[in-house]
């Protein structure tokens, strides 16, 4: 079906009595995303844009993109955007929000940006309880630079800089930044979601919506981690990568709310918060 008659086809269906159930939100621009086919970044972008659209805050939202695969996020969101230096988005967003409290401010970062070079900025923005929404896409690897080890790379997981698998004696344990932030009083809502199937997408969108609503109510920091595949980095097809993620990432990075309304969610085993180990690839 050639591109040009999409609009015509749509009008036909509407005439035939169909109603539109879903279409790409206008808060996303027409720019074609540069992400690899099947990458979770694109899906996550869509969910954030849909939340902004549904809350009617496109004219009040300011996004901050990192350095990493999502460095060009500002081309995809039709909202005012700033490009932060590698790891500095939480500091950038802190000032945007404090100087423009009426704006909705969100940061969008990968695992290298947020949990490696940006660790201090992440922890201190959370500890100050900045009233912003932080989106953290965890795919266990540095994507943009070609698949190197990230803080969240699992023990035994291969990458361009751990070609034989990550070793604890050389690179230490993977960092569960989300659990770590949940222990800080400044965080109000801390959750980990994913976007590899419709059920997960619904929950992820609800979590992102809650994070923005918390910001509207001035509740402090809302932190949403999105587990994602990295097809190029993991050298798998998108569908296989999603499967690998479910089998390996999720047991180590359990999905679900970790902190809600400022309190650790029930059913969260405190031991997990103190980062029990080992975080390893399921052989």
């Amino acid at each position: 079906m050639a591109n040009i008659d999409i609009e015509a086809r749509k009008q036909e269906l509407l005439k035939e009595g169909y109603t539109e159930v879903y279409t790409k939100t206008k808060v996303l621009t027409d720019a074609v995303m540069h992400y690899c086919p099947g990458c979770g970044h694109g899906t996550t972008h869509r969910l954030i844009a849909e939340v902004i659209d549904e809350m009617g805050i496109q004219d009040k939202t300011v996004g901050v993109s990192p350095v990493g695969c999502s460095v060009l996020a500002y081309n995809y969101f039709d909202v005012d955007f700033q490009e932060a230096a590698h790891g500095r988005a939480p500091a950038v967003a802190t000032a945007v929000k404090r100087l423009n409290p009426e704006c909705y401010v969100f940061t969008y970062q990968g695992d290298g940006d947020l949990a490696a070079i940006g660790t201090a900025e992440t922890i201190h923005a959370a500890n100050r309880g900045e009233n912003i929404t932080m989106i953290f896409v965890n795919n266990g690897i540095y994507g943009m630079t070609g698949g190197q080890m990230a803080p969240t790379t699992l023990v035994g997981m291969r990458s361009a800089t751990t070609p034989y698998g990550r070793r604890v004696d050389l690179n230490g344990y993977p960092l569960r930044m989300t659990e770590l932030l949940a222990t800080l009083p400044g965080t109000y809502y801390v959750t980990r979601q994913s976007v590899q199937n419709p059920g997960a997408v619904r929950k992820a969108k609800a979590a992102i919506r809650k994070a923005f609503e918390n910001q509207k109510l001035g509740k402090g920091l809302s932190f949403v981690e999105i587990l994602s595949n990295c097809n190029s980095g993991w050298k798998m097809t998108p569908v296989a990568a999603n499967k690998w993620m479910e089998d390996n990432m999720m047991p180590n990075y359990p999905v679900g709310d970790i902190k809600v309304d400022g309190k650790i969610a029930e059913g969260i085993d405190v031991n997990r918060l103190v980062l029990d180990h080992p975080l390893t690839v399921m052989q």
């Binding site: 932060a84 230096a85 500091a91 945007v96």
Partner: peptide, 9 residues
Amino acid sequence: NMVYGGAAT
């Protein structure tokens, strides 16, 4: 970087 974020608005 806070200067960056604030001044860029």
